[in-house]
C-alpha cells in the first residue's frame, strides 16, 4: 500500500476476512442440496463481487479445517489481473495437507472444525491492519460454517469473541449446516454482527450478496431480518454437555452440572452447596431501587 492510496480510504472500504469451513466430514454428509463445488462457485462469485464493489476493498480467506487452519487467499498479495479464483488452488493444497494430518492422528468421533484457530488467526491479521495507521479499511469477519460446534473449543472461541468485541469488530456468520450454531449465534450477538442460516442453499450467493456484501457504514441503513433468539446456555466442564441450570464454583466460576465436593479446575473444596444466593440477605434493599 503506497501512501497515495491510503488517502482514498473512506468509511465504505472494507476488509473482509472469510473463514471457510473445509471439514470433509461435514461436506460428505451434507444433504442440504449444496455440494462442495457449488458452494465454492457461490463463494468465488461473492468474493469477486466484494472486490468489484470498491477497488480498495480487500478480501482475506482462511480455511478452517479439521486438523489445521491456514491462510488461502489475500487479495492484496494476489496478481492484479487475477481475482478470487486463485483461492481454489491454495484451497486444494490446504485440503490435501489437512487430510494428511488426520491420517497420522487416528480419527476419533470429533468432527468439528477448528473455528477457534481460524478466528484467532483472523483477529491477528486484523490487528495488523489496525496497527498500520489511522487510515485502514473497515475490517469485519465472515464465518461460513457448517460443521457442529466443538465443545472443547468453547473457552478459546469465547476468548476470541471478547477480543473482537473489545476492538469493535463485527463477526458475521452464515450457517450452512443443518443445525444452528450456538457459538456463532453468541459471536454475532456479542460483537454486533449478523447471524443468518439460509433456508434455500441453492441461492447462497443471493443471501451472501444481500446480507454480507454491504460495508459496515451502509449496513446501518438496511432493514435486517429479526433475530430468532440466542442460545446462551453454557456447557459444563465435567461432561461438556449443554445445561441451562448448573453449579458454579465461587472461586474460579467453573460450571458443573452436578454438585461436587472439590473443584476440578482450581482445587478448592466446597462447603454445603447453596440452593440459592439467599435473596433475603443480599437483596433486602433491591426492590425499591
Amino acid at each position: 500500500m503506497t501512501p497515495v492510496s491510503r488517502k482514498l480510504y473512506t468509511d465504505d472500504v472494507s476488509l473482509l476476512v472469510v473463514l471457510i469451513d473445509t471439514n470433509p466430514y461435514f461436506w460428505s454428509t451434507n444433504n442440504s442440496g449444496l455440494p462442495y463445488s457449488k458452494f465454492l462457485s457461490h463463494l468465488v462469485a461473492f468474493l469477486n463481487s466484494i472486490l468489484l464493489l470498491n477497488q480498495l476493498n480487500q478480501v482475506v480467506g482462511i480455511a478452517t479445517g479439521v486438523n489445521s487452519c491456514g491462510y488461502i487467499y489475500d487479495s492484496s498479495l494476489a496478481p492484479p489481473n487475477k481475482r478470487a479464483e486463485t483461492l481454489l488452488q491454495k484451497l486444494e493444497e490446504f485440503v490435501i495437507k489437512d487430510e494428511e494430518l488426520s491420517a497420522e492422528d487416528s480419527v476419533d468421533g470429533i468432527k468439528s472444525s477448528l473455528l477457534s484457530g481460524s478466528l484467532s488467526m483472523a483477529l491477528c491479521y486484523i490487528q495488523r491492519v489496525l496497527r498500520s495507521g489511522s487510515l485502514h479499511p473497515q475490517p469485519r469477519i465472515l464465518c461460513l460454517h457448517g460443521s457442529p460446534d466443538g465443545p472443547g473449543q468453547y473457552v478459546a472461541v469465547m476468548n476470541s469473541i471478547f477480543s473482537a468485541q473489545r476492538s469493535m469488530l463485527p463477526i458475521d456468520s452464515c450457517v450452512i449446516g443443518a443445525q444452528h450454531s450456538a457459538f456463532l449465534q453468541q459471536a454475532s450477538h456479542i460483537t454486533g454482527g449478523i447471524y443468518s442460516k439460509p433456508q434455500q442453499l441453492d441461492g447462497l450467493f443471493q443471501y451472501l450478496s444481500t446480507l454480507f456484501a454491504t460495508d459496515l457504514h451502509s449496513r446501518s441503513f438496511i432493514q435486517l431480518h429479526k433475530s430468532v433468539g440466542v442460545d446462551f446456555r453454557a456447557s459444563c466442564f465435567c461432561h461438556k454437555s449443554t445445561i441451562d441450570m448448573g453449579y458454579i464454583c465461587s472461586v474460579c466460576l467453573s460450571i458443573f452440572c452436578k454438585p461436587h465436593k472439590k473443584c476440578s479446575t482450581c482445587g478448592s473444596t466446597f462447603g454445603q452447596p447453596q440452593a440459592t444466593v439467599s435473596p433475603t440477605n443480599l437483596k433486602r434493599k433491591a426492590p425499591d431501587s
Binding site: 442460545d231 461436587h260 452447596p273 447453596q274
Partner: peptide
C-alpha cells in the same frame, strides 16, 4: 488474588436463560 480465609469457596446454583427472539 483470593485469600483462602477471606472467602469460603462454595458452589452456587445458577441458571443460564436463553434470549427470546425479536417480536
Amino acid at each position: 488474588p483470593a485469600i483462602a480465609e477471606f472467602a469460603i469457596s462454595n458452589l452456587i446454583k445458577m441458571g443460564f436463560p436463553q434470549r427470546a427472539g425479536e417480536g
